[in-house]
């Protein structure tokens, strides 16, 4: 479950994200000023250089500058240091990057940061805290529903969204409704037990 925030340190004292950030500075500084209108058009065309955007992440408005090509996942992790959502396949397949966008589960790797403006973004950090866990987080702990833990943040968010729609899921609902997340350790059994426990104990709002 989410621990108090710790920076990802390497032995050199520089986190991987800091390294990636500093290595892209050259490209960023040469980017063109953005926000021109298309020729004779009333539609604003942004980029390809950085544009200023606002994201509402876990109830807080965050301002940042990103190129239009930056995904929501990269913006969360590399720009805002909200690192709960994980980058694994980066191809809309594994579910490790799952966040809620206006309450719906989405792959943050396949949403552009610039298109996530004006929407409520909730990551695993926004569901609960170590002191006050979300029912899904608590049930994951109690049912040993993680092993290496890398898929866990995405799975927790996906399970919370699933239970919102299926308060009393049967096994078929579970198989289909959690089909968008993969766990290579094979903790599916614990995850199914955790979801069933949340349902049995009154659901995600209990």
């Amino acid at each position: 479950m989410p621990k108090p925030k710790q920076p990802e340190q390497t032995s050199s004292g520089i986190s991987r994200r800091d390294f990636f950030k500093s290595s892209t500075v050259g490209a960023v500084s040469t980017a063109l000023v953005s926000g021109v209108h298309g020729e004779g058009s009333s539609v604003e065309v942004l980029g390809p250089g950085e544009v200023g955007i606002k994201l509402n992440v876990n109830g807080k408005t965050r301002r940042l500058r990103v190129e239009p090509r930056v995904t929501l996942l990269d913006a969360l992790r590399s720009e805002l240091d909200v690192t709960g959502a994980k980058k694994v396949c980066d191809r809309s397949t594994c579910g490790a990057c799952t966040v809620l966008l206006d309450g719906k589960p989405v792959y943050a790797c396949s949403v552009l940061a610039v298109e996530a403006q004006d929407k409520q973004i909730v990551t695993v950090e926004g569901l609960g805290t170590p002191e006050k866990m979300h029912p899904v987080q608590k049930a994951f702990v109690e049912n040993d529903a993680q092993q290496c833990g890398f898929c866990t943040p995405g799975f927790v968010v996906a399970c919370a969204a699933f239970l919102e729609k299926h308060p009393n899921p049967d096994i078929e609902d579970l198989k289909k409704g959690l089909g968008g997340n993969l766990c290579r350790c094979g903790t599916y059994d614990g995850i199914k037990k955790a979801v069933k426990q949340v349902a049995a104990e009154g659901g995600i709002n209990a």
Binding site: A31, G38, G40, S41, S42, V43, E44, V45, L46, G47, P48, G49, V51, E67, P68, R69, L112, V114, E115
Partner: peptide, 19 residues
């Protein structure tokens, strides 16, 4: 991913303008 321009029109007519 290559860098690109981005537009988010609100009408079909607007989309046709920038496509």
């Amino acid at each position: 991913m290559n860098s690109f321009e981005y537009a988010s029109p609100r009408t079909i007519a607007g989309a046709l303008e920038v496509l």
